[in-house]
């Protein structure tokens, strides 16, 4: 792969930013670190969500389902296998489910896909609850000696990997194919692109990532039951953060996650009943006030500045 000068620069910036973020636990402030874990988690989820949904325009609400599956893989396996082996296993299982769901629904229009993914978390929750009732135990314990800073660092590493992967996909044939699919799927088919396979491939990436995140977060829950592992709200939060930042660029979701997480924390601590309302208003604000998210706004401002300097 030939690297241009700009690529090295971006890579350097990314590494520096990551290293700086890794210093957070040194503050020793428990609240800050816990907030850091949330932000790091949402950065990974929203970025990997946007890798798939950005170019294809399919809105996936399956994040909570994959996340929950990952949590459960960790919860049911930790007694028998090591933590580090369970992370890739969670990714594999999440990816496999994503592949099956993708093959069944990604051939069809976006509406079918949204509906299907919307119910996926709830359906998985029902199935897990039923299975647990059948076998007679209610929840499982995940007991590890991992602390919040450990989880935070793990999530940062994962975030770095997701960014690298996204960057590599953006430069690959697959990335080019996805941009064409996003513009016009019929044209994509007629120039010889396997549209279904390309979409499924990216959906698998985002599904596997969400499952790994779920597995990483599991030790924080300590006690896992279906209602905590499968929270439909998570899917919506991820969608909003990614769209708020903008899916047009790799760094878009990142700039959406930070303000939204802070806002969410503030609202849910002072008005715990109003989070739903906040979620709804954010959706409407993105559609009517900020289409394209912060990235779209940035591009428009840049375009305007360029036009002005061209005229001057």
């Amino acid at each position: 792969m030939n690297m241009k000068k700009g690529d090295w620069k971006n890579l350097g910036w990314g590494a520096a930013l990551l290293a700086f973020a890794a210093l957070l636990p040194l503050t020793g402030d428990g609240y800050l670190i816990s907030l850091g874990v949330s932000i790091a988690m949402y950065v990974v989820l929203a970025t990997s969500w946007a890798l798939f949904s950005g170019p294809t325009h399919y809105i996936s609400l399956a994040t909570a389902a994959f996340f929950g599956v990952g949590t459960y893989v960790m919860g049911s396996g930790i007694e028998y296998i090591s933590y580090w082996a369970l992370l890739p296993i969670a990714g594999l299982i999440g990816g496999l489910i994503a592949a099956l769901v993708g093959l069944a629904t990604l051939r069809l229009s976006g509406v079918y896909f949204v509906i299907f993914t919307l119910g996926l978390a709830e359906m998985t929750r029902q199935a897990v609850t039923w299975y647990q009732n059948q076998t007679g135990h209610k929840g499982t314990y995940v007991l590890t000696d991992l602390t919040d800073p450990d989880i935070y660092w793990q999530l940062l590493v994962l975030a770095g990997l997701v960014f690298l992967l996204g960057w590599a996909i953006g430069r690959s044939k697959l990335g080019f194919a996805l941009r064409i699919i996003g513009d016009d799927e019929d044209v994509a088919r007629h120039v010889g692109i396997n549209t279904a396979l390309s979409k499924v491939a990216l959906f698998v990436v985002s599904g596997a990532t969400a499952a790994i995140v779920g597995a990483m977060i599991a030790p924080r829950f300590i006690y896992i039951e279906p209602a905590t592992a499968f929270t439909p709200m998570l899917s919506f939060q991820v969608v909003i953060m990614a769209l708020l930042g903008g899916t047009g660029r790799l760094w878009g979701p990142l700039v959406g996650v930070i303000p939204f997480t802070l806002l969410w924390e503030a609202i849910s601590s002072s008005f715990p009943n109003q989070t739903t309302l906040l979620l709804g208003l954010s959706f409407l604000a993105i559609v009517y006030l900020l289409p394209g998210g912060f990235v779209g706004l940035y591009d428009r401002l840049k375009g305007r500045a360029a036009r002005r300097s061209a005229m001057a």
Partner: peptide, 28 residues
């Protein structure tokens, strides 16, 4: 396609707003 995405986001937003208002007015 664009209309579809916008409509999905807007109606979802509306749905949450309505739920939020109902919780606020009548409790959960």
């Amino acid at each position: 396609g664009m209309l579809e995405v916008d409509a999905i986001l807007t109606t979802f937003g509306l749905s949450f707003v309505m739920v939020g208002i109902m919780i606020w007015a009548f409790g959960g």
